[in-house]
Amino acid sequence: MSAELFGQDRPGIVREISRALSDSVQKLQTIVESTPMSGERLFRAEADLVPPARIEFDQIRAAFEQLANDMMIDITLKAGKE
């Protein structure tokens, strides 16, 4: 399973994401870049995840949607590693 995350950069965002994903993150890559028009700092991350056993993909998706809302970021979750 993999996830792509992006949103406006801010202090502590890596800490918040790694804390939220600590039970399932296997690999986390992050980058901060400037948006073309405004120059604002955009945070992007890619994560390889190994979710806890016996949890359905729909449950994981719902948890990630809540995380995205709480952190005001966008998350794309993929069932297989692509």
Rank of each mutant, 00 (worst) to 15 (best):
M1R: 09
S2Y: 05
S2Q: 13
A3W: 07
E4Y: 13
E4R: 08
L5G: 01
L5Y: 02
F6Y: 12
Q8T: 11
D9P: 06
D9F: 02
R10P: 03
P11D: 05
P11Y: 00
G12V: 07
I13G: 05
V14H: 10
R15S: 12
E16G: 05
E16C: 07
E16L: 09
E16Q: 15
E16S: 13
R19H: 11
R19L: 04
R19K: 12
R19S: 11
A20Q: 11
A20R: 15
A20E: 14
L21F: 14
S22T: 14
S22C: 11
S22M: 09
S22A: 12
S22Q: 11
S24V: 09
V25W: 01
Q26I: 13
Q26M: 08
Q26S: 10
K27W: 04
K27I: 07
K27G: 05
L28F: 15
L28D: 07
Q29E: 15
T30C: 08
T30V: 14
T30Q: 04
I31G: 01
I31F: 01
I31M: 05
E33R: 01
E33N: 02
E33T: 06
E33C: 02
E33I: 05
E33K: 03
S34L: 08
S34Y: 06
P36I: 00
P36K: 01
M37S: 10
M37P: 07
M37A: 13
S38D: 07
G39Q: 03
G39W: 04
G39Y: 01
G39R: 00
G39L: 01
E40S: 08
E40P: 01
R41M: 01
R41P: 04
R41E: 02
R41Y: 00
F43E: 02
R44S: 12
E46D: 13
E46S: 08
A47D: 09
D48T: 15
D48I: 15
L49F: 07
V50A: 09
P51T: 05
P52Y: 00
P52F: 00
A53S: 12
A53D: 11
A53Y: 06
I55W: 00
I55T: 15
I55M: 14
E56R: 09
E56M: 08
E56H: 13
F57D: 09
F57V: 13
F57S: 06
D58T: 07
Q59T: 15
I60C: 06
I60W: 07
I60S: 04
I60F: 08
I60D: 04
A62W: 10
A62I: 13
A62K: 15
A62F: 12
A63N: 13
F64L: 15
F64Q: 12
E65T: 07
E65V: 04
E65H: 03
Q66P: 00
Q66D: 14
L67T: 08
L67S: 06
L67M: 14
A68K: 05
D70C: 02
M71F: 06
M71I: 04
I73G: 02
I73W: 03
I73V: 14
I75N: 04
I75L: 03
I75V: 14
I75C: 03
T76Y: 03
T76I: 10
L77W: 10
L77K: 06
L77I: 14
L77N: 09
K78M: 11
K78V: 13
A79R: 15
A79P: 06
G80P: 00
G80Y: 13
G80A: 14
G80K: 14
K81Q: 12
K81F: 09
K81G: 05
